[in-house]
């Protein structure tokens, strides 16, 4: 936590989401956006796309524009270009998408925007399925999870798409994974992103009690457990090459994280072992990347 001292990671008291939000109880997405908007302040234009965020963005007190699903990164590119041409190079442009709008339908526009190194911040709040439409699988849905389109008899048979590897392959100036379970770390990463020019990507795990079939009061706890089990490691990538991985202070087996969620309740010991094996393997790979090139 040494680096946190470089930044003031205190949570600002001013809110940029007005009361009466239409999010479900325990929504991780709205908590993520609440924190991120607090860091960004008033001088921001947000562009959103179809997701649960479409609903709660109605309560943003900062300006926002709702873009078509596949094109939020393109819309953000246009906002940036328009502001620059009008002489405003200061206002932050923030694109917000769920995992569908990032991993699936939005990835073409996002990839192109990063390739052009468009100057905006892209936040993916990842609740690991299409939650707005009623919990259908996305390519961000983890292996073994139940969703409305991956029934218990045939749960998701594929691994979660490794979006951060895809970001790294673009040599994006800055990409970081973050969690609502670690708000100071999240705030630090938003602040760090604000200091960098070009496309910046934040991948925020955002538990969805309805879709994850868990208790509404577990969103923050599960966010922490996802990090502690190394299922969702917290790390930063600079220019796609240099890594900084945070070691969890307290480590747990994946089974502890999985068993609190109804979406995994059908898994037998063998399936859980497989998930543990894959998680360990990916963690080792991540540390190997960091050992090759570390962020100073």
């Amino acid at each position: 936590m040494r680096k946190l001292k470089q930044f003031n990671t205190q949570i600002a008291s001013e809110e940029h989401i007005s009361p009466g939000v239409m999010a479900c109880p325990g929504c991780g997405g709205v908590l993520a956006m609440r924190l991120i908007l607090k860091v960004l302040g008033k001088d921001v234009i947000v562009t959103t796309c179809p997701s649960c965020n479409s609903g709660f963005a109605q309560n943003y007190t900062v300006p926002s524009v709702h873009a078509p699903f596949a094109a939020v990164a393109s819309w953000a590119s246009g906002i940036r270009a328009g502001l620059d041409m009008l002489g405003d190079t200061k206002t932050t442009v923030l694109a917000v998408a769920g995992d569908g709008g990032t991993f699936d339908i939005g990835i073409q526009a996002l990839s192109a925007a990063i390739e052009r190194n468009e100057n905006f911040i892209f936040v993916c709040y990842d609740n690991e399925a299409y939650m707005t439409t009623g919990i259908q699988r996305s390519s961000a849905t983890p292996l073994g999870a139940w969703t409305a389109t991956t029934p218990v008899a045939n749960p998701k048979g594929e691994n979660k798409k490794r979006i951060m590897d895809i970001m790294a392959a673009h040599r994006i100036p800055y990409a970081a994974s973050a969690s609502i379970g670690y708000p100071e770390d999240l705030i630090y990463k938003v602040k760090r992103a604000m200091q960098i020019r070009g496309t910046r990507f934040l991948h925020v795990l955002s538990p969805c009690p309805i879709g994850w079939r868990c208790s509404q009061d577990l969103s923050v706890k599960l966010s922490r457990m996802a990090v502690e089990s190394k299922i969702f490691p917290l790390f930063e990538i600079v220019n796609g090459l240099r890594y900084k991985v945070q070691r969890p202070q307290h480590e747990i087996p994946v089974s502890e994280y999985l068993r609190l969620q109804g979406r995994f309740s059908h898994l037998d010991a063998k399936s859980i072992d497989k998930i543990q094996h894959i998680t360990d393997r990916e963690w080792r790979r991540l540390l190997a990347k960091e050992s090759t090139a570390t962020i100073k």
Binding site: V72, S74, W75, I79
Partner: peptide
């Protein structure tokens, strides 16, 4: 941009700020 869908979204973004 990488496709026409993105093209029109990009000019729309620029138009939405004036």
């Amino acid at each position: 941009a990488e496709s026409e869908h993105s093209v029109l979204a990009a000019v729309s973004g620029a138009s939405s700020v004036g």
